[in-house]
C-alpha cells in the first residue's frame, strides 16, 4: 500500500513541479530556445487566454522546437501573473499571455504591483472584436432601433458587459458618447454570463466579443447588430461596423505574448518571428476561420504602440465613469 502511495506522491510531485524545475538555468543569446518555456496564464483554465494558447501551442512548439509549460496564476484580472512576470528573469523562458484591456488599464485603476514599463511586448496573436448582440426574438433589428429606444427612455435599456473595467464596459461608454445616449450597463462576471443573460432575455442586449458569441450567431439564437472594427470582419461580413454608421469608435479584446523588460532583442525577434510564421500557415488559417478565432498578428514595435494607444483611450473613460460608479449612474 505504501508503495502505491509512494508512486502517487512521485507522480504528483512531477506534475506539480514540472512547471518550476525548468525555470533555472543559463540564458542563451541567439541559440534560443534551448529548454521549455514557462507560460504564465493570468486567468483560470477555460478562459480566452487558454483558448488562445491551446490554438497556437501545438504549432508554436513545432516551430520553436521546444515545449510550452502552462503555469496558471489566476486572479485579480491577470495582475498576479503580470506581477510574477515583472520579477522574472529576462531570458525568454518566461512569457505571459497579456490581455487587453487588463494591460494597460489595471495598473492605472488600482494598486497592481507592477508597472507597464516592466514589460517587453513581444507579439499580439488575436484581437477579438467587440460586437453588439441581441437575442433572436428581440424587437431591436438595427442599431438605429437601439438608439431610438435609448433616447425615448434614457438609462433603461440594459446591456450586459463582461466586467468593469472590461473591454465591453469601455466600448459601451464609448458608444454612449458617440451616439449621445444613456444605457443601463450591467457588469457580469465574464463574457459567458453576459451573453447568456441576453439570450434568456434577462438583459436587452450584450456587448460581447465575436468568437465568444459566434456559435450562437450561426445558430440564429443571437443576432449581431454591429461590430466594433474598422472594417467588416471576414468571419461575419454581413454585420455592419459602428464606424460605417457614423459612430466613431472601435473596441476589442487582444491577447498576445509579453516578456520581462530587458529581454534581449534577439530573443524577442526569434519568438515573434515564430508566432508570425505559425499564424501564416494555411492549416492555422483554416482552423482560425472555422472557429472564429480573429487572428491579429502584431510584431514587437506595433504591439507596444498599440498598448500605449489603448492606455490613452481608456484612462479618461475610467476617470469619467469608473472612479465613482455611483456618481456615473445618476
Amino acid at each position: 500500500m505504501l508503495r502505491r502511495t509512494g508512486y502517487a506522491v512521485v507522480v504528483f510531485l512531477v506534475v506539480a513541479f514540472a512547471t518550476n524545475v525548468f525555470a533555472q538555468g543559463t540564458s542563451a543569446k541567439v541559440d534560443y530556445p534551448k529548454k521549455p518555456i514557462n507560460t504564465l496564464i493570468g486567468f483560470a483554465p477555460g478562459g480566452g487566454s487558454d483558448v488562445m494558447i491551446s490554438m497556437v501551442r501545438p504549432h508554436l512548439e513545432k516551430a520553436l522546437k521546444t515545449t510550452f509549460v502552462p503555469v496558471y496564476k489566476p486572479g485579480s484580472g491577470s495582475d498576479i501573473a503580470l506581477m510574477e512576470l515583472s520579477t522574472s528573469k529576462p531570458d525568454g523562458y518566461t512569457v505571459v499571455i497579456s490581455c487587453t484591456p487588463q494591460v494597460p488599464i489595471n495598473a492605472y485603476v488600482r494598486e497592481a504591483g507592477y508597472k507597464i514599463s516592466d514589460f517587453a511586448f513581444v507579439a499580439n496573436v488575436v484581437t477579438d472584436p467587440g460586437i453588439f448582440v441581441v437575442r433572436a426574438e428581440s424587437p431591436y433589428k438595427t442599431i438605429a432601433d437601439v438608439i431610438k429606444a435609448a433616447k425615448e427612455k434614457p438609462g433603461t435599456l440594459s446591456v450586459g458587459v463582461s466586467s468593469a473595467p472590461g473591454d465591453d464596459w469601455f466600448a459601451m461608454h464609448m458608444f454612449e458618447g458617440a451616439a449621445q445616449i444613456k444605457l443601463n450597463i450591467v457588469p457580469f462576471s465574464g463574457d459567458g454570463p453576459s451573453w447568456q443573460a441576453a439570450l434568456a432575455g434577462h438583459v436587452d442586449a450584450t456587448s460581447n466579443n465575436l468568437s465568444i458569441v459566434y456559435a450562437q450567431l450561426r445558430a440564429g439564437k443571437l443576432r449581431a447588430l454591429a461590430i466594433m472594427t474598422d472594417q467588416r470582419s471576414p468571419i461575419i461580413p454581413d454585420v455592419p461596423t459602428f464606424k460605417e454608421m457614423g459612430y466613431n469608435f472601435a473596441s476589442g479584446s487582444s491577447r498576445g505574448f509579453s516578456m520581462p523588460k530587458n529581454t534581449p532583442k534577439a530573443i524577442i525577434d526569434i519568438f515573434a518571428g515564430a508566432v508570425k510564421q505559425v499564424m501564416n500557415t494555411e492549416e492555422f488559417k483554416a482552423i482560425a476561420l472555422k472557429t472564429a478565432f480573429p487572428s491579429d498578428y502584431q510584431g514587437p514595435e506595433e504591439y507596444t504602440a498599440y498598448i500605449k494607444k489603448l492606455d490613452t483611450i481608456y484612462r479618461p473613460l475610467w476617470d469619467k465613469y469608473g472612479k465613482s460608479p455611483d456618481a456615473a449612474a445618476k
Partner: peptide, 11 residues
Amino acid sequence: LLIHGITPGPL
C-alpha cells in the same frame, strides 16, 4: 473541440 476547428453550439 475548438482546437480541432469545431465550434460547440446549438448546431
